[in-house]
Structure formats: structure tokens, C-alpha cells
Write a protein that binds this DNA or RNA. Structure first.
Lengths: 346, 346
DNA sequence: TACCGATCTTGAAATGTTTCACACCCTAGA
DNA sequence: TCTAGGGTGTGAAACATTTCAAGATCGGTA
């Protein structure tokens, strides 16, 4: 690991070859096909590398080989642990395939997303995984048309012209609200928005479906819209909820994600409400903080890591398998009941 | 934005030049020095690029130019929102300098950290920011010796052979415990570990300093060690705390970070303890979830984004300024008092 | 000794971009 | 008509690597 005095330029294969007294090709063989070079030569070359502190120049490698060694995941909201867990799953799979993973964060902004994508295309990454701000945005189609392996995460592809991985959000909405009805609640709020977000729309749809199927009056499922899926918005929804006249006030809330639920929970506790007795709460995603809340949160679990691993598997298949067929992988969400919805009412 | 039918190979400057009827050099000029080419030629070239769907090949660019357009941040624990916030700060600064940021996560594992670093060196990134598992690990020295701009984040450099950015952790420990003493607590637990982590050692040191300076008996500051700085470990510390004989049991806990504090808080609430009356809690970092906890958490705030921005500034200076001098930027932590420590006791 | 096959090594070509010295074309001035 | 010089455009070289056809070496055998 020792090094020559720095002379400005990083040592190249050429320098290694000279130091070891072999040709460029041999050095390259040591790097890429060690088995074809004799043990003694290999050793000599490796010693030279160590002495010079040689590190392969990845841009040159990539330029010549025509293929990068990296995947990328563009996540929607770095502040939401859900996406971090998905990224972990992707990284596990990438690691196994000996690929790097670039993690980017669009922060729900289309311009940031576009900028990231542009850079990733310039980098010629092997594949792009993304939870998009808008699944129909033209710059996404662009990626596909370019022939870059592409998988949509946490959103199902409508057109079917690329792979996608997601849970069944409608079903998720159904099981959340069914759980609340089971617990005896007769007036329930759905907290979430904006409805430009597909996940929000579908979770609400599932909620409404099961609500009417079980014969509950339509006006007793109240939609409390939010501007974003954040803790703060959850708190502010809590204020609005508290402001409702008591005969209209729901006894339970189903939040479009756990961040909203945590915000709502906090507001409820600080307003002196007892959870679940005065207000039951169900979240969505089942992030670790949900279980860790002061009143542990009932939540609709998504298999976060598995979502990521599957997405990575699909993108790798698209990258390497000539017979690749696009696939829409759907997972089934599961209710995880905790203290925030307590036991049966009354 | 339309494209030729894909013919397998992505279009290169050569193709663009041919399509526009100009030379390679001119295309490159349009890309890099638009001002030296006449408006009409430029337009023609740009049209050709659009028609072919040309995207610059970054590896070739980097190989020739000898310089990458990216920074990297290797964070210690992607599951801790603190590091996400630091990364946001770095990204802001990188964005302003028109650089990409690669975010990696070592997950507190030396081998993952080493692997990431190795890849980043191969990529020839312009600079590396890192919150290291072990600040004295030899592979870190290696980076510096290689001449890659390098900044340590959330840890102060001892040797001074590179830049670093951190808050004064000893001071942080002092203000946390001083606050508890002010509130009238006479028996306090420090929750945190392992002590291989410098931050933990220093926060404990600060706690001990102020404890003895204010004349409190040494044996009344109890150290509850943990295996990691996670919510789960916080919960388990809560169990151990509850198991102490009541005359030894502290009335307040200072946790080495907010995740521990949240775990401890959850255990306390579920065990029926009133916070802050039966147990007051102070965290460290002031992540967003601290304020959002059911009992909002008193915490020692670190300027998370600013830490990141400053680190990015330093690494950029090292990368571009020939007169760069290594700098240890220290920030002052501040106590943010919330409900979890309530008001004065008795 | 000559030849063979196996094993190992070589060196040139190719990858897509940027750079830079130079050539070209005008126009203006002598 | 010639020259100077600004404004444009050109094309070859360079960057660090990989690949691959071909060459070298060696031990063994006819």
C-alpha cells in the first residue's frame, strides 16, 4: 500500500506495466482475467500495483467496455424512511451483483428529478429505478425509449412498457378501513393528499369501496386533504379534525402514510385526546418509527426491502436477459395492529 | 426530442457532426464554449443533437478532461434522519456548484465503508465527504495521501491533515445535563454506547464534567450503555432503567442521540411512566421526529444542514483553491427545550 | 533436430470526448 | 492588389483502459 511520491498524475496501467516489466495487456489480464496469467507474473504485477498505489480509472474502463457498473435509484422523498428502506433492499441486490448504487432524491420536485435523470443518462448507468413524482411525465418515457433498463418503484406501470413494483394500494386502503369498522368505528376520516399522488388516490378508493360495501353511510367517511405526506401536515390535519363539530367528528383516522399518522398522533396527544379511545389511528407503510411511537401505530405494512430487491432483480434482468419481458410485480400489504387502534370499541 | 430508430449504439459527437455537416471540434464547441460558434452553426448543431437524441457520454468526457463532476458523501447510518439532513445540506452546495452528489451508506460497517471508498476512488470523484465508522482507520489516511479532497463530517480531525466539520460534543453533553440539573434532577442516566464511538464518549464526558462542576455526587450520574444508537436499543435501555431499585433509579435520562431517546420514550410511555414527571428525557441531534414525538422531545440541536453545507464548501475549496488550508469547523450546539423535560421539579 | 501444442505475453486498435494549433474566409486598410 | 487580423471552423492527438489476433516460449515427443 505504500506509494511513490505523488507526481501529480495517478499511476496508470502503463506505469504498472513498466514497473513490473510486462506489457499493458498483461496488466489488464491480471485485472480482468487473472486465471490466464501465470502465478509468478501475476504476483509481480500485483506487487507493482501495490507499490505504485494503482487504482483503476473507472471512466476509461467504462468507455472502453461500453458498460457501467452502477444502478441508480431516484427516490421521491429522502425524509421519509420508507424510501430509505426500499433503497436498502435495492442496494442488497446491487451488492450481490457487484454493482454500485447511486441514490438520488428528487424531493417530490419534477425539476430535480429531471436533472438527476439527465445526469444518470450521461453516466450511462446500467439501469434506473425510480419512484417518480409523476408516473406519466414525458421525461420518463424518454428513458425507456433510450433503451435504458428502467423500473418504476411503488407505482404500477399503466402502459406496461416497463417493469414496475408496488403493493396493491387499493387493497391496503380496504384492509385499513375494514380494521377500523371491525373495531366498531362508525365515523372515520381519511387523511391524505394531494390527490395528484396516485398512492393517495388508490388508498382512498380502497377505503371508500369497503366502506360502502359494508353498508356504512357515505357521508361518515370524511376526507381531510393534506398538501403533502409529512409529519407537519399530519399535525395540521389534527387541528382541522379537532375543529369539527363533535357530532361530525370521526372517532378514527386512516392516514395515507405513517408520517401523517405520526403528526396526527402527536397533535392528538398534545391536545389531550386519548389514543385509541378518543381517536384511533391507522398509518400506511409501517416504517420503523411507527412501531416506535409513544402509542405504537397500527399500520398497513409494505414489504419495503423486498420491494427494493424485486425492483433490482427486474432491472438487472432487463439489463442482461435478451428475452426480458416487462413485469408488474404486485405485493399484498398486511395490517399490523398495534395500540393506536386498541381493541373493540364499547 | 424525437429520435432515429435505435440502432444499438448511442449517437456520439461524431454522428452529430455528420448530421449537422460540421466537424467534431465544432460540436464540442457548441457543448462547451457556445460563444465561439456562430448562431447559425450552433442552431444547426443543436437541431442535429435533438434529432439524434444525443447525450454526452460522461465517461469519455471525464477521461479526456481528467476531472469528474461529482462529490460523494459516505454516511454512517442511513436509517438515522440526522444523516439525511446533513446530506441535504451537502447536496444544496453541490447543486450550486453544478456537481452531482453520490450518497453512500456504510451502515456502521467498516467493510462497506471501505468498499464504497474504493469505488469512489475508482470513479475519481472530485471530493469525498464522510462520517467514518472509525476516524483513525487506515483506509481514510489512504484517501488523503492520494490527494483526493477529503472532509470528515460530524467528527473532528485529530491530526489536522484534512478538513473536518462537527459540533462541540463535549459542550453538547454539558448543556444537556446542565438543563436537567436546572430542572431539579438529582439522579440522571446517560444512555448511549458503544464507547468506541467518539461522539458518545465526548457527550458523556461533557455530562460528567458539568455534573461534577456543579457539585453533584459522582455515583448519581449513571451510565446505561447501549450496543448501538438505535430506537430498539433505546427501548431496551428503558427496560434496564425500569429494573433498577427505586432508590437508585434516575429521574431523568440524557440519551446520546434522538433515536435512543425516542426508544426510551416509547418504553416509558408503554410502561405507564409519565414523561417528564416520572422520567425526563433529553435527546441529541434534534431530528424532525424529536419535535414530532407524542411527548415532544427536548434535544441538543445540531445545525444539520449547515454542517453539510460547510463540509461541501471545504471540500470544494480543497479541490479548486491551490492555497487551501485545512480547517476544523466547529459549531455550537443549542438546547431546544420541549415537553419531555417539562418545567422545574418540585 | 524438428515440430507440436499448450501456455503465456504482446502490441495495436478502439472507445467518445476535449483541446489546441492551425487553416480558412472575409473585410478593412494600405 | 496585397496584407493584417478577427472571427469560425477543422482534425489530429491525447486521455486510460480493454480486447484480440498473433507472437513467443517451453517441454515433450517423433
Amino acid at each position: 500500500m505504500s506509494q511513490q511520491p505523488r507526481n501529480g498524475r495517478a499511476p496508470s496501467v502503463k506505469d504498472v506495466a513498466a514497473a513490473a516489466g510486462v506489457s499493458l495487456g498483461t496488466v489488464s489480464n491480471v485485472l480482468n482475467r487473472p486465471s490466464v496469467v501465470s502465478a509468478t507474473t501475476r504476483e509481480r504485477v500485483e506487487r507493482a500495483m501495490a507499490e505504485l498505489g494503482f487504482v483503476r480509472n473507472e471512466s476509461a474502463r467504462q468507455l472502453r467496455a461500453g458498460t457501467s457498473r452502477a444502478l441508480a435509484y431516484v427516490m421521491l422523498d429522502g425524509g421519509n424512511p420508507f424510501f430509505h428502506d426500499v433503497a436498502e433492499g435495492i442496494e442488497t441486490a446491487a451488492e450481490a451483483a457487484d454493482l454500485s448504487l447511486f441514490v438520488c432524491n428528487s424531493n417530490s420536485r419534477v425539476d430535480r428529478e429531471a436533472k438527476h435523470l439527465d445526469r444518470l443518462v450521461q453516466q450511462r448507468v446500467q439501469g434506473i429505478l425510480i419512484t417518480p413524482v409523476d408516473p406519466d411525465a414525458p421525461h420518463l418515457q424518454e428513458i425507456g425509449r433510450r433503451g435504458i433498463p428502467f423500473v418504476m418503484v411503488d407505482r404500477l406501470s399503466s402502459g406496461g412498457d416497463h417493469c414496475s413494483v408496488a403493493v396493491d394500494d387499493v387493497l391496503g386502503g380496504r384492509i385499513a378501513v375494514e380494521h377500523l369498522i371491525d373495531r366498531g368505528h362508525e365515523r372515520v376520516a381519511f387523511v391524505g393528499g394531494p390527490s395528484s399522488i396516485g398512492q393517495v388516490r388508490e388508498r382512498l378508493q380502497g377505503a371508500r369501496e369497503v366502506w360502502s360495501e359494508l353498508g356504512m353511510p357515505e357521508e361518515d367517511l370524511i376526507h381531510l386533504p393534506t398538501e403533502a405526506l409529512t409529519v407537519n401536515e399530519g399535525r395540521s390535519a389534527g387541528e382541522r379534525l379537532a375543529g369539527l363539530p363533535s357530532r361530525r367528528r370521526p372517532t378514527a383516522a386512516f392516514c395515507a402514510n405513517d408520517l401523517l399518522a405520526l403528526g396526527l398522533l402527536q397533535h392528538a396527544v398534545s391536545a389531550g385526546l386519548r389514543v385509541p379511545d378518543d381517536l384511533a389511528i391507522v398509518g400506511f407503510d409501517d416504517i420503523d418509527f411507527a412501531a416506535a411511537a409513544a402509542v405504537p401505530l397500527t399500520s398497513v405494512r409494505q414489504p419495503r426491502q423486498e420491494l427494493g430487491r424485486t425492483a433490482a432483480r427486474l432491472v438487472l434482468d432487463e439489463a442482461t436477459n435478451p428475452d426480458h419481458e416487462h413485469e408488474q410485480a404486485t405485493f399484498v400489504p398486511a395490517l399490523v395492529a398495534r395500540a393506536s387502534t386498541g381493541t373493540v370499541r364499547r
